[in-house]
Write a protein that binds this DNA or RNA. Sequence first.
RNA 1: GUGAGUGUAGCUCAGUUGGAUAGAGCACUGGGUUGUGGCCCCAGUGGGCGAGGGUUCGAGUCCCUUCACUCACCCCA
Length: 420
Amino acid sequence: MTEIKAIRGFNDILPGEIGKWQFVENTAREVFEGFGFSEIRIPILERTELFARGIGEATDIVEKEMYTFTDRSGNSLTLRPEATASMARAYLEHQLHSFDPVAKLYCIGPMFRYERPQKGRYRQFYQIDAEVFGVDNPMVDAEVIHMLIHFLRRVGLERLELQINSLGCRECRPRYREELKGFLTKRSFRLCEDCQRRLETNPLRILDCKVESCQEAIAGAPKVTDYICEQCRKHFDRVKEYLAMAGLSFILNPRMVRGLDYYTRTAFEVISYQLGSQNAVTGGGRYDNLFQEIGGLDIPGIGFAVGMERLVSLLPAGKGFVQNPSLFVAALGDEALKEAYRIVSQLHLEGIRAELDYEGKSLKSQMRRADKLKARYVLIFGEEEFKRGRAVLRNMETKSQEEIPLQGVLNTLKKRIIGD
RNA sequence: GUGAGUGUAGCUCAGUUGGAUAGAGCACUGGGUUGUGGCCCCAGUGGGCGAGGGUUCGAGUCCCUUCACUCACCCCA
């Protein structure tokens, strides 16, 4: 029998680290709700077409990274590679705009992309998504970014860098694209192999190529922000203004490019230099064309996705996320063990973490286990005391112990455990 | 999809120019204290060296193939 292991890029999150995940999720819920967002849960499977149209046929995600299969009735389905398209679909399908044109939604859950795993990148990975549909006012751009930064601070992350850029709209971006292409074509002999190809497929991507010779070739290249139209320029100026009003500092990165087709105007990323090569903890932006691609209505949107495993990996180690038992009951002898079981069961009903040894091992080994589990108290429940109607309660930290009567043990224990 | 690195007990690793029953520390179990933890001491369980093939009298050590993991590229959270 060969051992069955989890498939490539799919990881288990074990009890030792789950505390961090719960902490991050709880903080996100609290912060986002405070900013007026509501949770939405969407399916993990969608019709392939939703992503193909929403994200863009020519993107890497759609071209080579989707988990797509045909179900038993012949429909092409895809495990969601991101949440935004599904959230937009849900918004349209249930006509949420008829309740209020502005919808502030967030969603937490796994995404799937068939990529080669590496540090900070897995085939199943978790994202926290927040989106605002229905407003294109720059004030919302700033508000969303403000919420994001506030969330990251609440989670305890320091030394992060907020980068912003404007990608222009469908009117002005093509102009810039041509301009850039023209500039780079003259210097194409200095570009790496990948960038030679990108010159045709996606010239903007060349801007953040890491190859040195490419960086040199890019020097002096036209900047997006110099080519965007009047409306886009105004929009971007207001975003910066509102960000400043919120007291946020940011770095303008005219070379930041987003890989999904639907992004327009504001784009942003939060970078950590403590991560590996995949250093974006979160990324997002405005997408005023997405809705038209998938449904027809002209609804603007803006949002971001936080990469949970990247975020969790930045959290300080330890920090009391592990839950330890409050009480360990060490019983000796069958009768005492039965009584111990009764007591522990009662404590569980009160929500008190209590453990006992089921195997009837020696007191020494039970004490060892209690110590290993870092139990605060041990109730020693031997046959002698049991006959006398008493038990010994030991405080594992102070090493002091006292004899308590069996009558009313539950109350005594509750008082001791909850009391301090 | 491409490239590089790694693959020996649950974990971290050591295994000399291929040589005799594969090691250490930690962890685990038991004992030293016939009913008491974390330190210490003693003992024990546990792998046949990712898998398959080859070279050889003999391979964890050499060659080939394959798989897995890691990091990086592409791209993204």
